[in-house]
Amino acid sequence: MQCAYFDAGACRSCTLMGEPYEDQLATKDAECRRLLERHDGIEWLPPVASAESGFRTKAKMVVGGSVDAPTLGIMNRSGRGVDLRECGIISPGILNVFPALADFITQAAITPYDVPARRGELKHLIVTESSTGALMLRFVLRSQEPVARIRKHLPGLRQLVPRLQVVSVNIQPEHKAVLEGEREIVLTDAESLRIPLGSVELNLRAKSFVQTNTQIATALYAQVRGWVEERRPESVWDLYCGVGGFALNCAHAAGRVTGVELSEEAIVSASLSAQAAKLTNTRFVAGDATTFAERQSRHPDLVIVNPPRRGIGDRLAAWLERSSVPHVVYSSCNAVTLASDLDAMPSLRPVRARVLDMFPQSGHYETAVLLERA
């Protein structure tokens, strides 16, 4: 795809923009194979391609400009807003609401945060779209000062954009590169966005993480679910489970499933989804994944790990290496740390792997790997 913002030099976030998509996908697949080439005998499944535009179902927009002329997009090097409200990788369902959101900023007199001057209120708008078309909108503010005005004008916005299901305010008072703060104020009766994903429906609360490419997330869950179904484990741990995507999708293929995640908000989301699906064999625990594993006296038949970009780290890799766990599924968003972690677990042999292009137009991608104990 081509992007006018990229061509004009206004935004270079999509580092591969303009390259043929087939070449992007082939390069990612080749890179991942190279990083894991020390491991013989891997069955490489064909890479999973994404739509190359309109795939992003979560948009984090920096708000700049002024009350009368707000910008929604990114910040340039001088700390000023660059408007990207026609960004081609964002889903059309989100793009369609940007004009109404810009008008709402003006109507509710919410002053965009001026980074160089350290004054103003509205830092970000975060919009998430479900595959049903329903939306979650979050205002990230410096303080509570605009909240009363947001409440006052919100009914009009929801009448104009009836797909708005969940609206909240996040308070981030600090002047530093942190997207959101600890406090969340939900302004609607609904507190979670229902997102059908794979074989289940996730309940996403405001501060919970969900994959930003629904098409590829669905394929990822299906791939992992297939590997679990082949083995029919009695017990499964889903470490770094987030809102429970892997655990919930694999619940019918296992006797017992336990999801572990540090974020208590995500655990609430996952538990709500399990209750709604009437899954009696699935539980979720808030806590550190590594500490949880080290404290258990019995080991499961299969472990799923889906860590952040830094990987699972030395402690969890060491625990998995010395454990009796016969199968591990590793879902990675960083093939460099994936390779390092696999090297630290020589007793667990990667037997199947697949690249899934979660992030077209960039050098990032997801990799799913099935490991078996040698």
Results as ranks from 00 to 15, higher is better:
L36C: 06
L342K: 03
P308Q: 03
S131V: 12
I42R: 05
I216F: 14
V257S: 04
Q24Y: 13
R151D: 12
N203S: 15
A254K: 00
V285L: 03
P350V: 01
L157E: 10
S362M: 07
K123E: 09
L187N: 07
I110H: 02
C14H: 12
R138C: 11
P308L: 06
R56E: 06
C333Q: 13
E201N: 11
G79M: 08
Q215L: 02
K60C: 10
V243T: 15
L125V: 03
G54R: 04
A374C: 11
F246K: 02
A206R: 04
A276Q: 12
A219W: 08
C14F: 14
H175G: 08
Q296F: 08
N96H: 12
V62Q: 06
A277C: 00
A251R: 07
V351M: 02
L95I: 15
V303I: 14
H299L: 12
G64V: 06
F55W: 15
Y365R: 07
E180G: 11
A100W: 14
E129T: 02
M358P: 09
A254H: 06
L35C: 09
L302S: 05
F98R: 04
S362N: 05
M345E: 01
I267P: 04
T15C: 11
A253F: 02
Q296Y: 07
I94A: 01
M75E: 14
A219K: 09
E129S: 15
D341V: 09
M75D: 05
R349N: 06
S273D: 07
